[in-house]
Design a protein around this nucleic acid. Structure first.
Lengths: 332, 332
DNA sequence: GATTATAGTGGCAACGTTGTCACATTGGAT
DNA sequence: ATCCAATGTGACAACGTTGCCACTATAATC
């Protein structure tokens, strides 16, 4: 590929001028600029962004480490972040940690080697604190999103406690009290159980701890769910993610339980198929999550760890559909 | 961040040796290597991949331009490609063209400036042929995936004609003959209509061209679908993508039509929610598509346009579920 | 008319690596 | 004893940009 030197020769100017022509803010005459652009066009020249980054010590690349893309929740976030970064003139280097702490560390490390300007990630652990400190020292802007793993970096999160509270309260208001909470096992977000307990307490219902489950990631959950349902016979379930929700629906199908006839369901994540199946969901403001993450990381890039870390908490809301049975109405 | 020079000083060696210690294939004694790695560890040094890329003229980055991530079909492909590239020691620069030809051009251009080693993309048009030729001249490996826009570059595609043939044939075998084909409008893949026509011809059914639709991308399709269904009263529908399928299901819900009671449905893309709703689908070998794309681009990087372009065609298969009614059985 | 600011230009070093060459050391073959 | 190959190491110039400085015109100020 052509270089600025070749363009300079063809246009009869210096490389400095070529460089100026391809940046905005430089002293250059209209006439020369146009001659340069014409020469570049002819040679098919575009500035080498790697060389530019090396020299300017700014890559204009943001790394994104997402735990699991198959989940539509994450793919929407990815799309939002990509388009926002594009708008801001940044590129996106993507990798998936698959909810694996070691992989996450490797990914972060590779991004650091790539000298990205910042990294947005969904921490799966909080045990890499010293590594994170290193990244800060190297002036890489860090934003943890969706989950909070580290206390000393910016974060943009959902109010999980509120989400679980809303879901549980909605079920209580419809007359349910044997409510199974299927949350996801995670060292860094136990707050859904808290929201559940708060709603139960407000309604003066006792909490049977057997109803509060923390499921492991990506194993076959259907058997666990099936056992719990046949053992405890709850009238309602709160599914902590859309994948858990899917497993609940499949399990019900296998057990010939109708939703909401035999079992009511509230699911986190208002994904596309939720409206198809008329599932009541706790909708997380996904778009906003992505936008806030971008805004936060731009802020951090500008301020460079001279200011305190900041936390943005986004509020979820409930979308009521047909998957919750009103036990008061049907009690006749 | 620390540089190789600093590591060299601390370890009491030259930068050349540091460079060698961080590559595999170099002459270096075990003793020196270990001293260097220790020094690097102490300083938190990792090689600057931008500098390495600039010097070696190889970025070990692949660009991926996907038209639309919200579609679970594409997000699975993205995941597969990411993990395969990671395994091969490449990084992934991602962008979304949103089915927009201008955006696609911009994305490709930015990736070229980023000096990626190759680009995998889903062409939305075939009108940028001269630009594509430029990319080839710059020795950027190109692979078009899922759709074919350009004749002179490698491609990895699905057998769309066969997919539509399988879907149509399945419906015919179940006694349907008023079959509505809802395909997506695209300048580069009209072959679904061909598969539909071939199946009809084999069954000696005439093709009413009003039943063959090419829908525009990302507009509100529900009204169009509703009109067509009430006008033509088909007994079955073939939905060309999962998003179209979703719109069909929503439309049926609004029109109080049951699936498969009043209308049978076969949908392309065996996405996760298809099994939840018991939808019969044409399953595209998504994993394979991603893997083949990676293999093809590695091949092209190695061979550098000294060989002819190659095309890989993957065969879809039908997964029969409950969304197709057998008209023979129910005719009593 | 002398001084000063400003727009426009070129030259050169530097960003952090790696490739190439040159050189030193060792051990074995002749 | 001499030669040669193999291994190990360092010096130095690149890779393609940009930042900085120096310089020249031209215009504006006193």
């Amino acid at each position: 590929m052509a270089t600025s030197r070749e363009v300079a020769e063809l246009a009869g100017v210096s490389v400095s001028s070529v460089s100026r022509a391809f940046r905005d803010d430089a002293y250059i005459s209209r006439e020369v600029r146009e001659r340069i652009l014409a020469a570049a066009e002819k040679l098919g020249y575009t500035p080498n962004l790697m060389a530019r980054s090396l020299k300017s010590q700014k890559s204009r690349i943001i790394g994104l480490v997402i735990s699991d893309i198959d989940n539509p929740f994450y793919s929407i976030i990815t799309r939002i972040i990509e388009s926002e970064l594009k708008r801001l003139g940044y590129r996106l280097l993507l990798s998936y940690s698959n909810e694996n702490a070691e992989q996450e560390l490797e990914d972060l490390s590779l991004l650091a080697s790539s000298r990205v300007d910042g990294i947005i990630f969904t921490p799966t652990t909080s045990k890499h604190a010293s590594f994170i400190r290193n990244l800060k020292k190297q002036n890489i802007a860090l934003v943890q999103m969706y989950r909070t793993g580290y206390a000393d970096i910016d974060s943009v999160v959902m109010d999980d406690e509120m989400g679980a509270y809303l879901a549980t309260k909605h079920l209580l208001q419809n007359g349910h009290s044997d409510i199974l909470l299927l949350s996801v096992e995670s060292p860094i977000s136990p707050s859904r159980a808290n929201g559940y307990r708060r709603a139960m307490a407000e309604a003066d219902k006792p909490v049977n701890e057997e109803y509060v489950l923390h499921l492991p990631f990506q194993t076959d959950l259907k058997n666990i769910i099936k056992n719990k349902i046949s053992l405890l016979k709850p009238t309602a379930v709160v599914a902590g993610t859309n994948t858990i929700g899917m497993d609940v629906i499949k399990t019900c199908k296998e057990m010939k339980l109708s939703i909401p006839g035999d079992l009511s369901l509230v699911m986190f994540d208002d994904v596309a198929w939720a409206s198809l199946l008329e599932i009541t969901t706790v909708s997380q403001p996904t778009e906003n999550l992505g936008l806030c993450a971008c805004r936060t990381i731009m802020d951090r890039i500008a301020k460079q760890y001279t200011t305190e870390q900041m936390t943005t908490v986004l509020e979820p809301f409930l979308i009521a559909r047909q998957s919750v049975r009103n036990l008061y109405a049907s009690r006749s």
